[in-house]
Design a protein around this nucleic acid. Structure first.
Lengths: 100, 100
DNA sequence: AATGTATATCGACTTTTCCCGATATACCAA
DNA sequence: TTGGTATATCGGGAAAAGTCGATATACATT
């Protein structure tokens, strides 16, 4: 993964917010029926509601975060659940500590 | 300082390189007469030579990095020396560890 | 099979970023 | 004070990102 792409993914207020919401889903989202968001993540619709941007924009933002390895996605039925990707974020932390 | 501005500053290959060069100036730049770059930093011209972009572009890039608190500048005579800003980079590291 | 819901993708428009050359400013030396 | 060097700022054209509404796709329910 290109480092520049990681930082570009983070260069947007809404995407930063999404990432911080996904750090503590229970504090930031109402409960979901049939899906434990601590394990599987939060579905696109909930993130969209909270962010207040259009569905297409949020879907694209989530895929930008995913391409940067900052979140991961799981499809279950008609829903896609996104959650924070611990490894990717640790990787970023390492880049900063070793290269900058 | 706005977090988004910090990540924007890092969303560019050349600016990331500059920052990594400034982490170890002695390894990345030829000696400068009359200026210890470990203490005071590296002048714009040397950075420009190494980066291979225009003078105006590099000057602007350095000021973007400075506004993000990632580097600091010292003017001495006709030269401006830029160096890595340890505090700003530590701050960034903290943001990532605590908020993302 | 038909309809409804969740998400992804497309096309378009606007705003921002990239990067340049030209010019301005600051400082130094003769 | 004139000219030279280093850096900053300005104006602009091309490329990328932000964001939307419309449409496509995928799945579930009847």
């Amino acid at each position: 993964m290109d480092q520049v792409e990681i930082f570009k993914a983070l260069s947007n207020k809404t995407r930063l917010q999404i990432l911080s919401w996904l750090k503590a889903p229970a504090e930031n989202f109402p409960e979901q029926p049939n899906a434990d968001f601590e394990n599987i993540g939060v579905c696109v619709g909930q993130i969209q509601n909270k962010a207040g941007l259009s569905q297409s924009t949020i879907s694209e933002y989530l895929s930008i975060l995913q391409r940067a390895d900052l979140v991961s996605a799981t499809r279950v039925g008609q829903w896609t659940y996104y959650k924070r990707n611990k490894e990717g974020i640790e990787q970023l932390s390492k880049i900063i500590n070793s290269e900058l």
